[in-house]
Every structure is written in C-alpha cells, then in structure tokens.
Design a protein around this nucleic acid. Structure first.
Lengths: 149, 149
DNA sequence: CCTTGATCCGTCGTATGCGACGCGTCGTAT
DNA sequence: ATACGACGCGTCGCATACGACGGATCAAGG
C-alpha cells in the first residue's frame, strides 16, 4: 500500500477531471439531447474552427492540431462531410494526401464558432481574477509534470 | 470578442485536460492494444474495485458511485458479466432491483486491483511534495468553481 | 523496371459515454 | 380493483476515441 492520503487525493482528482469533462463537453454539445442549438458536437466545432483559423489541412495534420488519432479524426470529418460543412479533395501532386476544407454553408454556424469551441470556458476564464487563472494553470501543469516524472 | 488571453488560456486548459485524460486512461487500459496486462479497462477496474471495497450494488447505485450514467454502467457490467467477473441477481423483495456482485474468478486480477483504478495517479501523488499536491487540488477546485459561477 | 520502405488514407472492431425509449414493477391514490 | 406516477433496468442510436489492418501512392535504390 503506497499511501492512504495519496489514494484519497487521486480519487478527488479523478472525480474533478470527470466532472470537468462533463461540464465542458455537454455545454455546446447535446447531440441527440433536448435541442442542440447547432447540432454540432465539441470535436466537430473544434475541427471546423481549426480549418477556419489555421486553414485547410490533411486528415493527419488536422489530427495533430486537435491532438487526436488519425482514425478518430477521419470519423469526425466523415460526419462533417455528410452535413456538407467540409469537403475532401485529392491533392493533385501527391495523391496520398487529402485536403480537408470548409464549404460555404459553414457560415450558417457563425454563432457557434464565434468564440471557438471553448466558449463556456473562455468566458469563465475571462471573468476570473489573475490569481485564479494562475492557480488553474499551475495546478494542471503540476499534475502533468508529476505524471511525466 | 470576450478577451484574447482568456481564449489562449482556454486552449491551454483544454489541451491539458485532454492529455490528462489520455495519460490516466491509457495506462491500465489498452483493451485491443499490443498486450494489456489484464485485459481490463479503467472503468471496468473501477467498477470491480467499487464492488469489492464498498460491496455489491444495483446498477444505478454503481453508476452513482462511479459518477457515470445508468446506460454506460449497464454496458460496463455487461462486459464484466460476459467475462464472468461479476454476476447479476434479481432482488427477491423488489424485482425492479438487480444486485451486481463480483464472482470468484475476480481474484485472478488482484495485481490490477491492488492500488485501485488510479494506481498511476496514486503513485504520482505519493511522490509529490505537499505544495505540489495542494497546487493540483487548488487548481482543479478553482476551475470547477469558475465554471459553476 | 521493379522491389522496398515510408507515408497517408479509409475501414474495422471494440470500449466508453450519453440521452431517449419502452418495459416491468412497486406504492399510492382514486 | 384499477389507474397513475415513480423507479429501475435493458436496449437503441449516436458520437467519440483508439489500435490494427490493408490499400494506394510516392521516393529511393537495386
């Protein structure tokens, strides 16, 4: 048995992370829920936002931007393509590459894309004091460092 | 436009949370990966650990313990039952209730259950200084408070 | 020219996770 | 007794999310 307080803290940390995941995903999400405002999920908004702000990209490049695996990103692009929000296009020079880019109808979703995918979190941080922001970032960085150690 | 620094911080926070989710889930997980030590995923270990330490429970009660939805928990119990690690049993008095309990073969997985589902995190926290632990918990609590505000 | 390796892509199987739905069951009120 | 609401459960559909696999393509070397 390592340490009892460590296990208690681990439980608390995991509970926090789980709850945060809930709160930050379900805000702009609710795909089949009572009534999603846009019908776009958070990863979908993130993908479109990245394509808008950083330009078109290949699937692998988009996966790197979103910090997701290739297969996951491929599925997200599938669903966006089915809605007609993005299009796949073969690269003429190197046909291994598929360029993903937004299409015209994406402008109907401006409201959802205005503050990017993290609208709720962005507003919460904007209303926070500098000390609170520092505490949040320090805590996360410390935790990452502990796990990497 | 709310605030530019707030959006930057939001991006950083989300990246941290995503990475943490990866690190804390993929450690004892790898279900189809190169070779999971036990073949049990993190939620499955959590469920079994809860049933061992806190006793048998109904599906809804187990969902409350794990902070998961009822349908998700039902699926996890399905897979554990298929492996013969837990069993469902109808309550005689009130047939709406289904008691979930561990079965004998669960003792083969003692190694994975020794430190509970959060072995990696527990060890990391055990090796951390009090100041580091406080920074981690403070950061998470502050973030939760900001979102609840 | 043709093999070899690297790379990108799509697809498959599996697990999590949620809401919505329908069914059976229990307690209570009519 | 019956109707009704509340509750627990299983199931369905959908969206992530991953690793593994095979196919297609290109570059480099034999």
């Amino acid at each position: 048995m390592v340490d009892n307080t460590a296990f208690r803290d681990a439980e608390a940390v995991m509970a926090h992370l789980r709850a945060l995941r809930q709160e930050l995903l379900t805000t702009s999400m609710e795909p089949t829920g009572d009534r999603a405002r846009s019908g776009l999920t958070t990863p979908q908004i993130s993908a479109v936002h990245s394509l808008l702000t950083e330009g078109p990209a290949t699937v692998t490049e988009l996966a790197r931007r979103l910090n997701l695996s290739h297969s996951t990103t491929s599925g997200i692009v599938d669903r966006l393509e089915a809605r007609g929000l993005v299009s796949r296009e073969q690269d003429a020079n190197d046909r291994r590459y598929t360029r993903v880019q937004v299409t015209a109808p994406v402008h109907q979703y401006r409201q959802d894309l205005k503050d990017g995918p993290y609208g709720r979190l962005t507003q919460a941080l904007a209303a926070a004091s500098p000390a609170e922001r520092k505490a949040v970032l320090d805590g996360l960085e410390t935790l990452r460092a502990l796990l990497a150690r």
